[in-house]
Design a protein around this nucleic acid. Structure first.
Length: 770
DNA sequence: CGTGCGTCGATTTTT
DNA sequence: TCGACGCACG
């Protein structure tokens, strides 16, 4: 046990060894948060305070859950089975599978990913002749998910206008449709579990008593439903008490409000649980001083913080280097030059990260890296299980497991083509609507030639199911790839080689899944009829209560095939296996959260881009952007670079941006402004002294001076891209010039004051710089 | 039934 | 600018 607590600092130690009460751990970036979480679990078990089965640890991503598992296995000699460590969605899936009957779901319910969900909605709109201009599928989807994330069913959503009323109606229709098909979307997994436990007292109490300790990672990212889910699990407000909720999070790293996360949950938790144990982890083990000072000073500009300041024992380190480029191309070129010298100094390419606010920015940088022959890896590409060919194969498997999944049916009914055209499908849809049944079930009601081709398709699926009944999962997958005609189809396609490779990878994915998830290598992928009949819900009623806990029941209620399909929906897999290569890492700031690198570039630091222009329209938007910047800065261990460009091509138009306001919020003494290679637009603020400290390199300086003087002496010669100052609107950049003489007008971007068109003969403008 | 062209839109993302 | 998607044609 001493080993366990050996290298913890006093705050970490205090957090790890807290009593079994609700606790809030404010864990700054790089403060050893995961270590605290895992060590606490290990400590609780090792000191005999709880058995592994009494632990419930919740994360947002599979990656985080896996990481916790791995670290725990290394710490504890005992088996980690019995502990429930997983994502909200994964844990809900487990509960719903076990208690499917109580949850009013079919045993083989399937999980829709966002793509599937959107297609269900599109289908729904079409089937009901709803104008998708007035009700765009994406908007409807957002409306539905938003309601579910707040824990609201259609009958509880308040509608204030006809559009909203229709949305609510669509929400209800959507839920009905999903119920008919036996499918649930991501939000539904949570809401359904929440409702199940709310309404079923014995079941609820069973799990409340079981989970003595509930630990949550990234608590600042919880939405309302997730928080209520946790409250329910922890038995909040119940006299017989439930588990102790140990919440770990960082309000300064809350960057997911746009998807429903509510930082307010942190203070709500503190208040509602009467949290006595609030511990701040402020010792940072990641970054050098200048980097940390920058992060601290920047984030201090936010109001409504719980309050936290990172400190380090490491020295100041290198200053933060800042570069102003003339264009997005020049910015990319500079990144390449700096990367090259880092690599020359011995830096590993995978320890260089290029971060950007939005994906569109990656193009130019990728291009430059490519031209320079530097290997790179872009995060956030398409995931394995999202690829079209893989989704097709999955759809066949889904139909074998639950033929009423209409999305799966439509995806492959005519793929590869087998003469089932639009008219056949329309006829089928009509029959299905008429009887209120699934497409699959409606096949017998379609007559004629269409009916017979459809009949053959059904036979194909039934045949595959029958044939594979006794097979282990990987073998089943192989048979389905063949029987579906997918392999043959891609063999004839000229660019099908990659796709075939992806399809064949599915067999190994199945093999790996079967061995990792303990479904037994030899077990048939389907359950025999007997085990299906026996498999059951927890038997729960008021008096003779017998609970079948999920641990015991799961293998009997879920076949390897069902489990594999859940896995495919819940874990979309990595994007491309280029991991082995030593490559520069490129990603959005959002996806960099949780990662760290020796060298980090934060790019495109311009008003409108970062902070993003749409953030100024949202309440608290700029503060969220600032937190995003905080996340970006705190990714760096040793060297941090920031850059921005005077001109940038965006959506086919050249934009002239002011440099980001965030530069004004950084400590000057930690920064090193690098010499501009071209005429500067003299950064529209009081950064002059910093320029002076870093004298311009001889010749560049002279050229820059001349250029500026020239533009001044031209008098009327205002220039697009030039920075100006206005008495009322402050600093801005000239974006466009029109007219001439006394009619001359300039369109000027004044950043937070917006875009203005000013008459140059009237407006009083000063050139900035000199 | 597959291809080709025109329109439209365009932060951020996990499950 | 560029890509995804929907519709018209061969």
């Amino acid at each position: 046990m001493h080993n366990l607590l050996h290298n913890l600092n006093p705050e970490q130690l205090a957090a790890v060894t807290l009593p079994a009460q609700s606790a809030l751990i404010l864990a700054g970036a790089g403060s050893g948060k995961t270590r605290v979480l895992t060590t606490r679990i290990a400590w609780l078990i090792q000191t005999g305070q709880v058995s592994p089965a009494g632990i419930l640890a919740v994360t947002f991503t599979n990656k985080a859950a896996k990481e916790m598992m791995t670290r725990l296995s290394a710490m504890l000699p005992i088996n980690t089975r019995g502990m429930w460590i997983g994502t909200f969605h994964g844990l809900c899936n487990r509960l719903l599978r076990t208690h499917y009957r109580d949850a009013a779901l079919p045993q083989t319910f399937q999980i829709l990913d966002s793509q599937d969900q959107l297609s269900v909605i599109k289908r729904l709109l079409k089937a009901n002749n709803i104008d998708d201009e007035k009700y765009p599928p994406k908007t409807v989807m957002y409306f539905i998910n938003n309601a579910k994330d707040q824990g609201l069913r259609a009958d509880k959503v308040e509608a204030y206008d006809p559009i909203e009323r229709k949305m609510v109606e669509l929400y209800q229709m959507y839920d009905d449709q999903c119920q008919r098909e036996g499918v649930v979307d991501f939000a539904e997994l949570l809401l359904r579990t929440f409702e199940l436990l709310s309404r079923n007292q014995p079941l609820r109490e069973h799990y409340q008593q079981r989970f003595k300790h509930i630990l949550v990672d990234e608590f600042q990212d919880t939405n309302d439903l997730q928080y209520n889910w946790l409250k329910l699990m922890a038995g909040h407000g119940q006299s017989n008490g439930g588990g102790a909720l140990f919440a770990v999070g960082d309000d300064d790293q809350s960057i997911y409000a746009f998807r429903g996360a509510n930082v307010g949950n942190m203070s709500a938790f503190e208040r509602e649980f009467k949290v006595q144990n609030l511990i701040k982890l402020e010792q940072n083990y990641r970054s050098h001083g200048h980097i940390l000072d920058s992060a601290n000073m920047l984030i201090a500009n936010n109001s409504k913080r719980l309050g936290k300041n990172l400190r380090t024992d490491a020295g100041h380190g290198e200053p933060v280097r800042i570069y102003e480029a003339s264009s997005d191309l020049a910015e990319a070129q500079w990144i390449i030059e700096e990367s090259k010298s880092l690599i020359a100094e011995g830096a590993s390419r995978s320890e260089i990260a290029v971060l950007y606010r939005s994906n569109a920015q990656s193009r130019v940088i990728e291009h430059a890296l490519f031209s320079a022959g530097i290997p790179y890896h872009v995060y956030g590409g398409q995931r394995y299980f999202q690829r079209a060919e893989v989704k097709h194969a999955i759809a066949y498997l889904q139909l074998m497991d639950n033929p009423h999944n209409d999305s799966a049916f439509l995806r492959v009914v005519n793929f590869p083509t087998r003469g089932i055209g639009l008219r056949s499908v329309e006829a089928l849809q009509a029959a299905a609507d008429q009887y209120g049944i699934s497409l699959y079930a409606a096949v017998p009601y379609v007559a004629g030639k269409a009916g017979s081709s459809l009949g053959n398709f059904v036979k194909l699926v039934e045949g595959a199911r029958f044939e594979t009944q006794q097979m282990p999962l990987p073998e089943l997958v192989r048979v389905v790839l063949e029987a579906s005609g997918l392999l043959t189809h891609y063999q004839t396609e000229k660019e099908g080689a990659d796709r075939i490779e992806n399809l064949e990878q599915m067999v190994s994915a199945a093999t790996q899944f079967v061995s990792e998830e303990g479904f037994g290598q030899g077990a048939p992928a389907h359950l025999g009829p007997k085990s299906l009949a026996q498999a059951g819900d927890a038997i729960v009623n008021e008096d003779g209560i017998e609970i079948i806990d999920a641990d015991a029941a799961l293998p009997t209620v879920m076949s390897p095939l069902s489990a594999f399909l859940s896995h495919a929906s819940l874990e979309a897999g990595d994007n491309q296996a280029t991991v082995g290569q030593e490559a520069v890492q490129m990603m959005t700031v959002h996806s960099a959260k949780g990662l760290e690198f020796n060298n980090v570039f934060i790019t495109g630091l311009e008003e409108g881009l970062f902070p993003h222009e749409s953030s100024s329209r949202e309440e608290g938007g700029v503060e969220e952007e600032r937190r995003l910047m905080y996340v970006a800065i705190t990714r760096a261990r040793q060297r941090l670079y920031m850059c921005f460009a005077q001109t940038r091509m965006l959506h086919g138009q050249t934009r002239y941006n002011l440099k980001s306001r965030f530069f004004d919020e950084l400590p000057e003494e930690s920064l090193k402004w690098l010499s501009p290679k071209v005429q500067s637009h003299w950064s529209a603020n009081s950064r002059k002294s910093a320029w002076d400290e870093t004298p311009l390199v001889g010749s560049d300086n002279a050229i820059a001076q001349k250029l500026v003087q020239k533009s001044v002496s031209t008098g009327a010669g205002w220039r697009i891209g030039e920075s100006v100052a206005h008495g009322k609107f402050g600093e801005g950049v000239i974006v466009n010039l029109e007219g001439s003489g006394s009619n001359a007008r300039a369109q000027i971007n004044f950043g937070s004051h917006g875009m203005k068109v000013l008459d140059l003969s009237i407006a009083k403008l000063d050139r900035l710089g000199r």
